[in-house]
């Protein structure tokens, strides 16, 4: 992110805190090396399949995406909450949909999956708040654990729904 962003007419309290977006991510030294690399005659790596975000950046972005999904998914959760408590017939309609309707099962599994990931990534945040694993190695390790634990929970959620 260029330093000139500070000249924006509106005061911004929060910039993007992703490691890739932090002002320090592109240092003058690295800009200088990029400049030299661009102007040299040596081969340049333009194979996009070998250029990727580090895992902690991906889990951070996924934490945001699952958060947005869960907010949209509240419509389904509130519908089930409302309908199931409205009357015995309403309760039967919700349990029948979750037992026999493929689309309802898919939505339930999708939302449980988003919830599982968001939950685990949130616990990771809380651990970092109490100074656990706040190192580069710790960050990668915790991102790996987040992926593995939420993958297990997502499979278990699928078993539960079906």
């Amino acid at each position: 992110m260029p330093v000139s962003a500070a000249a924006s007419p509106l005061p911004q309290t929060t910039a993007c805190f992703h490691p890739v977006c932090l002002p320090g991510a592109v240092t003058e030294a690295s800009q200088e090396s990029v400049y030299r690399a661009v102007n040299s005659k040596r081969p340049v790596n333009l194979d996009l399949t070998t250029i990727h975000f580090p895992l902690p950046a991906l889990t951070s972005i996924a934490h945001r995406i699952t958060g947005v999904i869960l907010f949209i998914g509240l419509i389904f959760a509130f519908w089930a909450f409302d309908k199931s408590l409205s009357s015995p017939a309403g309760f039967a309609a919700v349990s029948d949909a979750l037992a026999h309707n493929f689309l309802a099962k898919l939505i339930a599994w999708g939302l449980l999956s988003a919830l599982a990931f968001h939950f685990v990534a949130g616990i990771k945040h809380l651990l970092m708040d109490i100074d656990i694993g706040v190192t580069l190695e710790g960050g990668v390790k915790k991102a790996q654990i987040t992926v593995v634990v939420s993958a297990v929970l997502i499979i278990l959620a699928g078993v539960w729904v079906w």
Partner: peptide, 15 residues
């Protein structure tokens, strides 16, 4: 949920 969604979505939308 109301507070958490607002803080989270405010952050995402401002970013």
């Amino acid at each position: 949920i109301a507070a958490h969604a607002w803080v989270g979505l405010w952050t995402v939308t401002t970013d």
